[in-house]
Design a binder for these strands. Sequence first.
DNA 1: CATAAAACAGTAATAATTCCTATTTTCTTC
DNA 2: GAAGAAAATAGGAATTATTACTGTTTTATG
Lengths: 130, 130
Amino acid sequence: MNHSKQRDLITDYLMSTKSHPTAEEVYNEVKLKEPTISLGTVYRNLNLLADNNIIVRLHMKDGIDHYDADTSEHYHFYCNCCGRVYDLDIKAPAAFNKCIASKGDASGHKIEGAMVYFYGTCKDCALKTD
Amino acid sequence: MNHSKQRDLITDYLMSTKSHPTAEEVYNEVKLKEPTISLGTVYRNLNLLADNNIIVRLHMKDGIDHYDADTSEHYHFYCNCCGRVYDLDIKAPAAFNKCIASKGDASGHKIEGAMVYFYGTCKDCALKTD
DNA sequence: CATAAAACAGTAATAATTCCTATTTTCTTC
DNA sequence: GAAGAAAATAGGAATTATTACTGTTTTATG
């Protein structure tokens, strides 16, 4: 993987935010600093970074991929109302992990991991609908 | 919600299979019995049924929606290799549920539920790659 | 049976993402 | 530092899952 200005900008932006942006949002943000960057480049680099475990790809129920440069184990919260993704402070609950690990090959399938995220109504949206 | 032959066929097919088909797969299957059905009708009905909690919509990491007529609480397994979705016999582990319930509003967000699914290599694919 | 609401088939439109190509940038070696 | 090969890029076209639209048919109801 060669060095590239565009990839650095993408990584830098992801590291600077906790908003779990989509490719489109990354594109709009990075374009401010590198106006000629193309959307294809953003997608290619996000995939490259995710495939190499430098960033994390999040599949939430809106069907749009979100990205997170924080690769430490933590859980996410998806707001059904506004679609924003938040970090949860729940630190990899022992109960969850034990449970996931214990599943092993009971089913005959090789279980390598679990996707877990929480959803509901976020703080902001709860205020608005009151 | 009025009665409709097309919706019945879709529901019947979903109840007859454990394959967690996509809209496209439902379409192809139902078309065998009702050749003039349109893909739009399949999508509309799947959404209608899912919105009314008659079936369940599954968002796996392939980004394509899968559907399941089994609304009893159970977990799913996604094969990274072939993309098939399987039921897991893990019956709503108490540890998981307790954990999810206990999260409550610790974060300030109203947590209404959790998305959980497992992934890895399924039995069939494990055999093939040996 | 008449009417209104709901559902339909068929097709066009959207939207997220990937693919393609000619050009530019990066890395390596001299 | 220049030259050549590999990697990356911009820009746009293509793909794919899904939704929206429209005129017609089906269903429920009085």
